[in-house]
Simulated assay, not measured.
Amino acid sequence: MDNTLGEFLRSRRAAIQPEDVGLPPYGRRRVPGLRREEVAQLAGVSVDYYIRLEQGRGKNVSDAVLDAVARVLRLDATEHAHLLALARPAHGTAPAPAPAHGGVRPGVQLLLDRMADCPAMVLDHRMNVLAWNALGDALHGFAAEPLRRNMPRLVFLDPQAPELFPDWAAVAADTVSYLRLGAGRHPDDAALTALVGELSLGSEAFRRLWADHLVREKTYGVKRINHPVAGELRLSYETLALPGEPSRTLVAYTAPPGSPSADRLALLASWSAPPRGVRP
C-alpha cells in the first residue's frame, strides 16, 4: 500500500542529527538521523502514536501533533504544508485534465502574446506546458517537439537535456521537488501518477531524486539555457499563480538590460518574429 506520508517523515527524520535538536549523539545508530522514539519525545506524543503515524495509520491526527512533528523535523513552510496535505489527502478533488496548447483562457493567451520581449509559458501542476508565446517557443521548441511540452519529460527523457541545461543536476532536483509537491496536493490525479511511473521507468536519476521526498515551490530563480542558435542564456524567471486557477502558473524569463543574455534574447526574438503582414 502507498504510504507517502511515512516515507516523507522518514526522509525528513533522517536529515536531522541529534545535536541539531539538543540531544547528545550517544550510541551507535543503525540509520542516520533521529530515531522514532526521539521524534516522539520531542514532539510530546507517545512512541506508539508516532510509529502509527509513520505507518500511515494516524487517522484524524490533530493539527497540534502535525505542527509539533514539523517543528521537531525543522520543516520549512512548504514542507509543513506538504505534511498537512499528505496527512489529510483531498480525495475527490482531482484537477481537470490538462488541455493541449491553446487550452488557457483567451485573456491569458493574449497576455502571453503581449509579453513579446520575454519567453513565457503557462504550466499546470504536472508541469505540462499548456500555452506559450512566440519567444517561449523559440527558446524551448514547444511547437516542433511535443516531448518538450512537459518539463519533467524534457529534463529526464530528452537525451539533449544535459546540454540544453548546463546546470542540469540543479534543474533536475528542482523539477522533481515541484512535481512531488503537486503529487501531495493532488493524490487522486491518475495522469500525474502515470507520469511519475513513466519517468521512474525511463530515468534512474528521476527514481533517485523522487525517493528523496524533497518538496520545493518554484517561485523565482535563475536558469542557464544553452540554446543551439543563440548560445548560452542566463535568465531570471518569475512564477506567478493565475487568478482562480491555483494549480496553473505563468512563468516568464527575463535578462538584465545590456547583458550578453539580453542581447542574445533580442536576437532570438528577431529571428522568431513572423514576417510583416503575417499574423503569429
Rank of each mutant, 00 (worst) to 15 (best):
D67A: 14
L181T: 01
I16D: 15
F142Q: 01
V21A: 07
L75R: 04
S200N: 01
A252Y: 07
A252Q: 06
D67C: 00
S62R: 10
V171I: 15
L240I: 15
W271D: 12
P260A: 13
A190G: 00
L267E: 15
A98E: 10
A169C: 00
W210R: 10
E38P: 12
L157F: 03
G184L: 04
G136A: 03
L112C: 03
R12K: 13
P246W: 05
R35S: 11
R208G: 07
L157C: 01
Q17E: 15
G141M: 13
E54T: 06
D263M: 10
R185V: 09
V215Y: 01
F206L: 08
V122E: 15
S259L: 08
L42E: 08
R149H: 05
A144T: 00
H213W: 08
E145M: 12
K218L: 15
A252L: 15
G107M: 12
R30M: 10
W210D: 14
R28K: 09
A14D: 04
V31Q: 13
F156I: 00
H101Q: 14
S62L: 11
G221F: 00
P152M: 06
A161D: 12
G27L: 09
S200Q: 05
G244M: 03
P260L: 13
D137S: 06
R216L: 10
P152E: 01
P187D: 09
A94F: 08
A98W: 00
V61Y: 10
R28H: 11
P275Y: 04
N3M: 06
G182A: 11
A81C: 02
C118Y: 13
C118V: 04
Q109I: 04
R105C: 01
D113C: 04
S203C: 04
E37L: 04
A194R: 15
R149A: 09
M151K: 02
D63A: 15
M121V: 00
P275G: 04
Y237E: 02
D76P: 03
P25S: 08
R114L: 15
T249Q: 15
A273Q: 09
G44Y: 10
L242R: 13
D158F: 05
R35D: 12
A273H: 09
V31C: 06
P25W: 08
P260M: 13
R36E: 01
A85T: 12
A116S: 14
S177R: 12
P32D: 09
A40P: 07
I16K: 12
Y253Q: 05
A273D: 07
L181P: 02
P246A: 06
L53A: 09
L179W: 00
V61K: 06
G184N: 07
